[in-house]
Amino acid sequence: MAYQLNGTTVEADEEGYITDISQWSKELAVLIAEDEKIEMSDDHWEVVNFLRDYYEEYQIAPAIRVLTKAVKKSMGPEKGNSQYLYELFPYGPAKQACKIAGLPKPTGCI
């Protein structure tokens, strides 16, 4: 599949993860989120930005358990728990947030 943004085509795999991370933009994130029936709030952006930083540092998309733990460490326990993250990203925080962040599917995702 592919996303259409301002007249350009951004290629994605069959599940909607973009294939070239360098093509990511905030506008594209909003578009992917719409496809996922998510309206991006500051809380959503906080997690998406966190994931992008994580990827920048480690070159992988974290598994949900690892994401939760890392969010807890960085943003505190009221956000670093799966309930909070599932409220933001109901179809799986790691998968959905990674997709919106332009990252590959999480490694260690089962």
Partner: peptide
């Protein structure tokens, strides 16, 4: 090729 060496530093988080 992708430099995957930074990922070794993520192992601790796993």
């Amino acid at each position: 090729m992708k430099n995957f060496s930074p990922t070794f530093r993520a192992l601790d988080g796993y």
